[in-house]
Every structure is written in C-alpha cells, then in structure tokens.
C-alpha cells in the first residue's frame, strides 16, 4: 500500500465561516496504479490532492484525518519535514503549463535543480539526466531545449517539460492536477498517453485529478467521484462506467456530448450550482440538484455503501437501478438524464 488516506478533512476558516473543502475522504492507492479523481469545479478535488501532498499553508487551514505514505503518517508533518518527500517521493504536474514554469529560468536549469537538491548529482550528470528526461517525454532536440526559455516552447511542449520535472527524481507518487485542461484536444491525449507510459515504465502511482470523465476513462484503474468535498462514488474504472450507482455520476456522464447525437441536440446539463461549502445542504450534498431526490435525501446524508461488485462504493439512498429510481425516471419521462445505466465501459472522450 503506497498511500492510505483515512477520513481526511481539510477546512479553511474564512470571514464567512469555515469552508469544508474536503469532508471525510478515504481512499487507498497501490504502487503502480492510477486513480482518477473526478468532480466539477469547487468539488474539492484540487484541495484534496494538495492537502494529501501537504502543500497547503496558512494559519486558517485545518487538516485532520490520516495520510499514510509508504506506511508512515504524514498529516502532522510540517512543510519543512515534508520537503524531503516533495519532488523525491511525490510530485505534482500542474494545470497550466503557461504559468507553472518560471519564465526567467532556462528549461535545463529548472529540470536540474531538483536533481541537485534531492539526488546530489553533479552538474554534468544532472544535465545528462535532464536531456534523457526530455527524450523520455518525447521532446525533439532535447539538448537544444535545455538552453531555451519557457516562452520559446509551445503549450504541449511546456506540459511535457513539467512532466519531465515532476518525474526527474523518480517519485513513487505523481499528482496530475488537470494536466490537460489548458491544452487542445489532440495534445491532451498525447499527454495522457505519456503519463500512462511513464507510470508503467517507472512503476509509479498516479492520481489524475480532472473534471472530465472522458479523460480518466482510458487512463485510470480506479475512479473516485467527488461532490461537495465528499467522495460520493468510487469504483474500478470499468465497473464505474458499466454500473454507476450515484445519480451525480450519471448526470456527469450524461453531460458529455456524444458523437451519435443528432446535430443541434441540446447539451445535457446538471441544473443548479455546486453546494456552498460553508453551509452545505442538510442530508445528501447533491440533493438540491438531483432529479431523483426524495425526502430522505434532504434529511439524512447517505453513507458510503458497498455495491454488489468488488471495490465499488457509493453514497446514495436511491441509487441508479433501485425501484425508486425507476419509478421517478418513469415520472420524468424525457426530462430524465440521458445516460442509460449499463453503457459499455468505453466512453467517447
């Protein structure tokens, strides 16, 4: 077990009240596996990944629960104590390659710095390693790139450089926080492919944070769906798409435009807005927006319950496929979310 997160709660005290950005999340991750964390903006997925890594700072921050990395508890460590892990054991690929490289430092310098700091490589060794890393992430003319500044590279190229930097010291765990959001679609799949290849070659674990179910579909072993700071469904990737239980997951999937739809089909949306994390709704956080909501949903928050298939948990009183679900679905008729349960595991992205 590489990473074991138990009942992680991260909150920020603000003048408006306490924002419960992560509210009791638990998951585990084995070495070499990829976990996708999916949710819309404000669902707490970025805060979750940063708080697992311990990157968040501030006197208004509160973090409780347990984060065991390679068997050791890290939640009570200070930034100073975490520093030896950062870069060397865990690293992060950021969302926007345009802003996550220092504009005034050459690529080579930016890659070799962690190599100096963590592995103590000499200057020439570090440069050679950097060149090899750039080749690993499929950057042509790697030697020349080392002497270039970030603005001389394209967005996709910069994201590759970011990946190279994140991989530089051979970390066991890499967080990829929306690594493809700022890139165009053709480059997206290349980058995801690259992360996958590197994961298998280096036997490292990847946590892929994204709002796009299509992105995680082909590149993860397991998917965790977050809503309002909580984990609402978690299952092996194939099971999740084949047998989703949570109406939110269903709605999320339904909102992906499909190729086989006729043109001018209206995009399916989830009405309403993500919950206010200062005053979350009573009961199920998704209840105000759920098409299948019943009185019980508004009163009591559903616990994570195991589904019939192994490794699948969900938090819903009336999951997809239950009698109540079908009853309400019949009432709604055409207005019901379009994604039929039981679609085969592959999803067009």
């Amino acid at each position: 077990m590489l990473l074991e997160v138990t009942d992680l709660r991260t909150s920020f005290r603000t003048p408006r009240g306490t924002v419960k950005a992560v509210d009791g999340v638990s998951f585990t991750l084995d070495r070499g596996r990829a976990l996708g964390i999916v949710g819309e903006s404000g669902s707490g997925k970025t805060v979750l990944s940063r708080s697992v890594m311990g990157l968040l700072v501030g006197s208004n921050l509160e973090r409780t629960g347990s984060i065991r990395f390679e068997g050791e508890e890290t939640i009570d460590r200070t930034a100073r104590q975490m520093r030896d892990l950062w870069g060397a054991e865990m690293s992060m690929i950021f969302q926007d390659p345009m802003t996550s490289l220092n504009p005034l430092m050459k690529i080579g310098k930016q890659i070799t710095e962690p190599l100096h700091a963590h592995l103590g490589l000499s200057k020439s060794d570090a440069l050679a390693t950097a060149e090899q890393l750039l080749r690993d992430v499929r950057i042509p003319e790697a030697g020349r790139r080392l002497k270039q500044y970030p603005h001389e590279l394209s967005g996709g190229m910069r994201q590759r450089v970011m990946i190279a930097i994140a991989l530089a010291c051979g970390p066991a765990l890499v967080f990829a926080d929306e690594p493809t959001t700022a890139l165009d679609v053709t480059v997206q799949s290349q980058i995801l492919e690259l992360i996958g290849v590197q994961r298998r070659e280096r036997n490292m674990s990847v946590i892929l944070v994204t709002h796009d179910l299509g992105v995680v579909a082909g590149h993860t072993d397991e998917i965790a769906v977050m809503y309002g700071g909580r984990l609402v469904e978690k299952a092996p990737t194939r099971q999740l798409f084949a047998n989703m239980k949570m109406p939110y997951t269903e709605a999320l999937l339904a909102s992906i435009p499909k190729l086989e739809d006729r043109s001018h089909t209206r995009l399916t949306t989830i009405p309403g807005r993500p919950p206010d994390l200062v005053n979350p709704p009573a009961g199920c956080p998704f209840s105000p927006r759920c098409a299948y909501v019943r009185d019980r949903c508004r009163a009591e928050a559903p616990p994570l319950t195991p589904a019939e298939d192994a490794g699948h948990v969900f938090a819903c009183w009336y999951p997809v496929g239950s009698p109540e679900y079908h009853e309400r679905r019949a009432e709604l008729g055409d207005a019901a979310p379009a994604a039929a349960p039981g679609a085969d595991g592959e999803v067009a992205s």
Binding site: L55, F94, N102, P103, L104
Partner: peptide, 26 residues
C-alpha cells in the same frame, strides 16, 4: 501565488531559494 512558485515548492525547494531564484528575478 503563481503556479511556478507552488511548483518549486512541490519539488522540495527551500524558502530562501524560492525567494532568490523564483521571485527575485521576476
């Protein structure tokens, strides 16, 4: 608050070097 400062931190850079290498030149 720029991402490259966070990125440097996430790679284990110490505070003095973040100040001198990441922020001062900018």
């Amino acid at each position: 608050q720029r991402e490259y400062v966070l990125a440097a931190r996430s790679l284990g850079a110490r505070t003095p070097r973040i100040l001198v290498r990441e922020i001062l030149p900018n």
